Lab assay of single mutants.
Amino acid sequence: VTLFVALYDYEARTEDDLSAHKGEKFQILNSSEGDWWEARSLTTGETGYIPSNYVAPV
């Protein structure tokens, strides 16, 4: 399991995006899409895309 933590708040801009709150942890499901990674929030269980530069490894 690849875990990352949000460094900043991010507000989803499309229905495919996933909002993130600073300190929230995510499981990365797919990081092969360049700057946008598919992730699952460990807080809400929701999945979507987050900007890779907004997260760091735990």
Score class of each variant (00 low, 15 high):
Asp17Phe: 14
Gly45Asn: 07
Thr14Gly: 15
Ala12Glu: 02
Lys25Val: 15
Tyr8Met: 11
Phe26Pro: 00
Glu46Phe: 10
Pro51Leu: 06
Ser52Pro: 06
Val5Lys: 03
Ala39Ser: 01
Pro57Gln: 07
Gly48Gln: 00
Ser52Cys: 14
Ser31Cys: 15
Tyr10Glu: 01
Thr43Trp: 13
Phe26Trp: 03
Gln27Glu: 14
Tyr8Gln: 09
Pro51Lys: 07
Thr47Ala: 06
Asp9Gln: 04
Tyr10Ile: 12
Gly34Met: 10
Asp35Glu: 12
Ala20Tyr: 06
Trp37Ala: 03
Tyr8Pro: 00
Thr2Ile: 14
Val1Phe: 13
Ala12Leu: 02
Val1Asp: 14
Tyr8Phe: 12
Val58Gln: 06
Leu7Pro: 02
Glu11Tyr: 09
Ser32Tyr: 10
Thr47Met: 08
Tyr54Ser: 12
Gly34Gln: 11
Leu29Asp: 04
Ala39Arg: 00
Ile50Thr: 02
Pro51Val: 03
Gly48Leu: 04
Leu3Glu: 10
Leu29Arg: 03
Ser41Trp: 02
Glu11Pro: 06
Ser32Leu: 12
Glu11Lys: 09
Leu7Val: 07
His21Lys: 15
Ser19His: 10
Thr47Asn: 05
Gly34Ile: 10
Ala6Leu: 06
Ile28Thr: 01
Glu11Thr: 11
Ala20Val: 15
Ile28Tyr: 02
Ile28Leu: 06
Glu15Arg: 10
Tyr8Glu: 09
Glu24Asp: 10
Tyr10Trp: 15
Thr43Cys: 14
Asp16Ile: 12
Tyr49Ile: 08
Gly23Trp: 05
Asn53Gln: 11
Ser41Thr: 00
Asp35Phe: 13
Tyr8Asn: 06
Asp35Arg: 07
Phe4Lys: 03
Gly34Glu: 12
Gln27Thr: 09
Lys22Val: 12
Thr44Gly: 03
Lys25Ala: 07
Tyr10Cys: 03
Glu33Ile: 11
Asp35Lys: 08
Ala12Gly: 10
Thr14Val: 06
Leu3Ser: 08
Thr2Leu: 13
Ser32Thr: 12
Leu3Phe: 11
Thr2Trp: 11
Trp37Asn: 01
Asp16Gly: 15
Asp35Val: 09
Glu11Ser: 08
Ala39Val: 15
Ser31Val: 11
Val58Pro: 03
Leu18Phe: 05
Leu18Asp: 00
Ser19Pro: 11
Glu46Cys: 14
Val1Cys: 15
Ile28Asp: 01
Tyr10Leu: 06
Glu33Gly: 14
Phe4Cys: 12
Ser32Ile: 10
Thr43Val: 11
Glu33Asn: 15
Pro57Asn: 05
Arg40Cys: 09
Ile50Met: 03
Tyr49His: 07
Leu18Pro: 00
Trp36Val: 09
Leu3Ile: 15
Leu29Val: 07
Val55Phe: 14
Glu11Arg: 06
Glu46Gln: 14
Ala39Thr: 00
Glu24Arg: 00
Ser32Met: 12
Leu3Tyr: 13
His21Arg: 14
Thr2Tyr: 11
Ala12His: 03
Gln27Val: 15
Glu11Met: 10
Leu42Glu: 07
Phe4Arg: 04
Leu29Gly: 02
Ala39Tyr: 06
Asn53Asp: 10
Glu46Met: 14
Asn30Val: 08
His21Met: 11
Asp17Val: 12
Lys22Trp: 05
Leu18Lys: 01
Asp17Arg: 13
Tyr49Phe: 12
Lys22Arg: 11
Ser41Glu: 02
Thr44Val: 00
Tyr49Ala: 04
Ser52His: 08
Thr44Ala: 01
Ser19Ile: 04
Ser41Gln: 02
Gly34Arg: 12
Ala56Met: 10
Val55Cys: 05
Thr47Gln: 09
